[in-house]
């Protein structure tokens, strides 16, 4: 129909932040943080967060296991959440010709690799957190809890108490 319909794009000036992490065993390192003109996936339900009443502790969803990335404001309230297939894992997926059992897992002794997340650049955002069930070999049974926290902007690194994560930066990433 009209040409306008086909140029319909999201909100003008969509801004997002891409964080790239490398991991070795349970250690997750931020290696790159870059502002990009892209549309992050929509948020998952934020209402599932149940922190203790009246407290600001919202970094866990009791009784839920897995892995998600969360964007929070300075009062620890989640602004954005995206559930991921757990990226840091002590196994790998393998494929077979058996049409009924074409997928399986094999244990991996030394998990090592890189992954990226794309989160929206929200005005109220204070930090991004990785929330995960314990990163360990074998069946995981425990609910997820925060395992790492990073500032969204480089100039806020000093003020930010990054948790377990050993955060380093490539000096010329980000360009701002």
């Amino acid at each position: 129909m009209t040409s306008e319909q086909h140029t319909g794009s999201g909100p003008a000036g969509a801004a997002a932040v891409r964080l790239i992490f490398e991991y070795e065993g349970p250690d997750i390192r931020l290696v790159s943080r870059q502002r990009v003109d892209a549309a992050p996936p929509p948020t998952d339900d934020l209402s599932e967060t149940t922190g203790p009443a009246g407290s600001d502790a919202t970094d866990e969803r009791p009784g839920v296991k897995g892995f998600w990335v969360e964007l929070r404001d300075a009062r620890q309230q989640p602004l954005y959440r995206r559930v991921m297939h757990p990226p840091v894992r002590y196994d790998a997926e393998v494929f077979s010709d058996d049409p009924d059992r074409s997928l399986a897992r094999v244990p991996v002794d030394e998990p090592k690799g890189a992954f990226a997340v794309l989160v929206p650049e929200l005005a109220d955002a204070d930090h991004v957190a990785l929330v995960s069930s314990p990163l360990a070999p074998g069946p995981t049974v425990a609910p997820a809890a925060e395992v790492a926290r990073f500032a969204l902007r480089e100039d806020e690194d000093e003020a930010d108490a990054a948790n377990d994560a050993d955060e380093t930066e490539e000096p010329d990433e980000g360009g701002h």
Binding site: R61, G63, V64, K65, G66, F67, W68, V83, H85, D91, R101, A104, R105, V106, G138, P139, T140, V141, A142, P143, A144
Partner: peptide
């Protein structure tokens, strides 16, 4: 199953914790 049907020995009952995946 994890390693494979008839191979696993520790994959009988899923722990009573809800997975976050949809």
């Amino acid at each position: 199953y994890y390693l494979g049907c008839g191979v696993d020995t520790n994959r009988n009952v899923h722990p009573a914790v809800e997975p976050a995946e949809p």
